[in-house]
């Protein structure tokens, strides 16, 4: 391949090909492969599901079945930051719903929605295991605890 053609290859494609090659023939590879493919693409486009099926020799129907069963997998593009608001028991009891309401108003989206500027995807989850600081939310891998509706704006502003 010449230098010009090399530039035309999507680096994500190369990463996916490497990923599939690395897991070829391994038992139980589907879920880890989908997790890593989602890290590469940010979500799981239909074409990626098809290529994962071909690469692991699994019918694409089963790949789709798995991708839609687990909450972690997304078939549509996600925002740059994923905001998971916890509504587990402890957060529910300590007023998580009010915090969620404020976030929904600030962002103008509901559960599963992504803001128009692609800045946030909002998800409601049941327990992120930081119950001692309820109510809580998690933005990407960062946990924010002891929330009150008036703290929300300041925290959201920290994320581009």
């Amino acid at each position: 391949m010449c230098d010009v053609c090399q530039d035309l290859v999507d680096p994500k494609e190369t990463k996916l090909a490497e990923l599939l090659a690395g897991y070829a023939g391994q038992k139980g590879a589907l879920i880890p492969v989908l997790q890593k493919a989602q890290e590469i693409y940010g979500y799981l486009p239909a074409d990626v599901l098809r290529r994962v099926g071909r690469g692991l020799k699994i019918p694409v129907a089963r790949v789709y079945g798995v991708a839609t069963f687990y909450a972690q997998f997304r078939l549509t593009p996600m925002g740059r930051n994923v905001l998971r608001v916890c509504l587990g028991t402890a957060c529910h009891v300590r007023g998580g719903a009010k915090v969620l309401e404020t976030i929904e108003q600030e962002l103008g989206v509901k559960d599963g929605g992504t803001t128009e500027d692609q800045r946030f995807t909002l998800e409601i989850v049941a327990c992120i295991g930081a119950c001692g600081l309820a109510p809580t939310m998690m933005i990407n891998d960062q946990v924010h605890g002891r929330l009150t509706p008036d703290k929300v704006g300041g925290i959201l502003a920290q994320y581009e």
């Binding site: 038992k27 139980g28 590879a29 879920i31 997790q35 798995v66 069963f69 687990y70 909450a71 972690q72």
Partner: peptide
């Protein structure tokens, strides 16, 4: 990958098997 039912033994094993 985000499924509460996978805490159940047989569901958990299905998940490790990639199902």
């Amino acid at each position: 990958a985000g499924a509460f039912v996978c805490g159940e033994e047989t569901a958990l094993m299905a998940s490790i098997e990639g199902k």
